[in-house]
Design a protein around this nucleic acid. Sequence first.
DNA 1: CGCAGAATTGATACATCTCAAGCTGGGTGG
DNA 2: CCACCCAGCTTGAGATGTATCAATTCTGCG
Lengths: 248, 248
Amino acid sequence: MLDGTMSLAKTECSTCPIRHRAVCARCGPEELVQLDAIKSYRSFKAGETIAWAGESLDFVGSVVSGVATLSQTMEDGRRQMVGLLLASDFVGRPNRETITYDVTATTDVVLCCFRRKPFQLLLVDSPNLSERLLEMTLDELDAAREWMLLLGRKTAREKLASFLCIIARREAGPNAEIPHDNIAFDLPLTREAMADYLGLTLETVSRQVSGLKRDGVVRLEGKRRVVVPEFDRLMAETGDEGHELAWA
Amino acid sequence: MLDGTMSLAKTECSTCPIRHRAVCARCGPEELVQLDAIKSYRSFKAGETIAWAGESLDFVGSVVSGVATLSQTMEDGRRQMVGLLLASDFVGRPNRETITYDVTATTDVVLCCFRRKPFQLLLVDSPNLSERLLEMTLDELDAAREWMLLLGRKTAREKLASFLCIIARREAGPNAEIPHDNIAFDLPLTREAMADYLGLTLETVSRQVSGLKRDGVVRLEGKRRVVVPEFDRLMAETGDEGHELAWA
DNA sequence: CGCAGAATTGATACATCTCAAGCTGGGTGG
DNA sequence: CCACCCAGCTTGAGATGTATCAATTCTGCG
């Protein structure tokens, strides 16, 4: 893998859009120099596979822009998405030779990649780096557990509403903490990918989107653009009722 | 919480049964002394709640013996288990005041608790500790993602078989890497708790256990003791076909 | 002995899947 | 510039796996 993908020119970390949220968020100038020495940018086009499960992966990295997914596939073709990687999210596992999941770009994606071996060394004597990585991993674990509740116990409609909420929160209002009304955003996933994420079939996803539209919870502009007139209305459909604490 | 639970006398780390697998696995003698200074043992009886979601928790710790669960509950009572904690597993989140999930003892449980604040300080200048915690967190994340596949895509029968496999692996043959035939073990969970774990109802769990028994995949001795005549037979029912790499 | 919690089993309901048929919109080549 | 094409999406009708509701039956224990 990684053939046919272009390498971008290096970019200054100081102007990096994910500087304050990624794994390097708390690194000082001297640590940035060290990271800079082992980093390179890679671009992937929408639909491209970034890495296959089981493949050996010699880098770890951060999503600079775009949306990528982690997914698992069973022999008979059943597929489950197990992670949605947005800007600043971390890819790969230090101290592990191979990747466990398929990593796919669902929009155009830019990755800031660090060579894995030297990154592991940096991790050992840079607490700023390792602490941040631990924190991000714990956040991902919380997100995964939130998703387990969705997969195990929510209805199809609740699943869709929950999904739209998550996207609205991270895509819309650049970093608005309190989501406002009339949020608009583009779905970064096809119906099929949404189905894989939600543990549904694509037909059921389609029906639930239609249902939410029919009931005025969302409006669609084209197939991909979604407008949420009242955010509370959408929230009420998630089954979570208020105390939604997570999703940093 | 934690009222009415007895504190045990301190025990030497050197004789601790989870010494080589827990968060302290790679600590040297001097680090153990520091951990020892902030540790205390706490016991919980089967069925007892160790902590409630949202509650503030002033410790983190390791499961020394017994089985505990992490679970989430929705307003209307739907419940999903999001973690199964066996001996050596870590409880709590450093740098976080409150716990996000209900923690329940499903068998008698002994916890080795560290006061949270001093533990966080130790984490900063003890790479042996923080590296191990990161590794364990990444393992838990892998387990959670494996569980997402189960919840989202497996049939009820596959879910049961997968669950029995996991328990067989960790409960049976003390630490047998390659599971043998005629494994026997006790289920640490009631049918209801299994249902909460698997995203099913307790009736469906019961029916699937009966089905696996009828088909000779497992034998039951009483309600709780399970014998697996041929491990491969059980594996074949999980839907994972062979390449099961995970589950340390 | 008999009670209470846990588990099994049965009958029926229903949400989601499956299979199948059209629709829609943006790109392409004639 | 239009006609076609095709991936992505929607909608319908029927099948099916699991949930739900309702009895029983176990099992351990006071």
